[in-house]
Design a protein around this nucleic acid. Structure first.
Length: 270
DNA sequence: ATTATTGTTGGTAG
DNA sequence: TCTACCAACAATAA
């Protein structure tokens, strides 16, 4: 599921289901997902809480629950659904909330086959939340600040730097691949070698791919099997220059790009 | 059977 | 303290 656009989509749905509601029950048996308290303490501390704002930074969601804040990260395969109250437990349903708003009751279920996601209950903001870089969808990006953060390491590739959540929050493998293609930048380029106009193009490209993915999600279910321009399209012709897309590995992640029209910028060796 | 997958994190080595 | 690298987490699909 989740990079910035999927998480933002999730936030919007959660806000619809949760905002202004009161938690009647919160149930989980999964101490891997529910943290840092026991599942029992998790249920006890959330019961009765009234839900306020549902916010997002990068891939994290923060839910205001009265005295506590619930931080949600979807990992690789987490998502929320709102099944009927009396429906059977869903496959891989890890956490279940029952909420009341006026006379209406709603069930909100966290589902996560691989269990890499987390629901963290805290009274203060988590370091994982405060240490995030600016969010390219909701924050303005200061190009000078971005350039400084990218230059933190001399040899790191721009692709790896984009996945660093302290540089920009919410960019994942797919969005990075799509944006680098749109900006015409080779993912192997040194992050510290990009010029101001590259960064401007990159920030615009991020906006482009994030808004596009968000629009696809808002359209509802079943889009094309692969709605992306570059990701997962090794061997297919680049829409811009017809050179076949190449696939390499960078920082342990699969990276697809066009060797024909994505320009490689390298820092001079000294 | 084998390989790949939208993401962190914790260990180790430098 | 910092960066870099990598295995681990777990389930499914091709």
């Amino acid at each position: 599921m989740p990079e910035l656009p999927e998480v933002e989509h999730t936030r919007r749905r959660l806000e619809r289901w949760l905002r202004g509601a009161r938690i009647e029950h919160a149930k989980s048996r999964d101490a891997r997902i529910v943290r840092p308290v026991s599942t029992r303490a998790f249920a006890r501390q959330l019961t009765g809480a009234k839900i306020g704002r549902v916010e997002r930074r990068g891939k994290w969601i923060r839910i205001d629950a009265g005295t506590h804040r619930l931080f949600v990260h979807l990992g690789m395969t987490g998502w929320f659904e709102s099944p009927p109250l009396d429906a059977e437990p869903l496959p891989f349903e890890r956490v279940t909330f029952v909420l009341a708003r006026g006379r209406k009751r709603v069930r909100v279920s966290y589902v996560d086959p691989r269990r890499w996601g987390r629901l963290v209950l805290a009274r203060e903001d988590l370091e994982a939340w405060t240490a995030l870089g600016p969010d390219p969808l909701s924050d303005g990006i200061d190009l000078d600040v971005l350039q400084r953060r990218l230059a933190r390491s001399n040899k790191r590739s721009i692709k790896e730097a984009l996945l660093d959540q302290s540089v920009l929050a919410g960019v994942g493998n797919i969005q990075a691949i799509e944006a680098l293609w749109k900006a015409g930048i080779d993912p192997r380029s040194h992050a510290s070698a990009l010029e101001a106009r590259d960064l401007l193009a990159l920030v615009r490209a991020l906006h482009w791919t994030i808004e596009r993915t968000l629009a696809d999600l808002a359209k509802g279910d079943e889009g094309a099997d692969n709605p992306f321009r570059v990701y997962g399209r090794k061997g297919e012709p680049c829409p811009r220059c017809a050179t076949p897309f190449t696939r390499i590995e960078l920082g342990g992640r699969t990276t697809t790009f066009c060797p024909g029209c994505q320009v490689r910028r390298v820092r001079a060796q000294t």
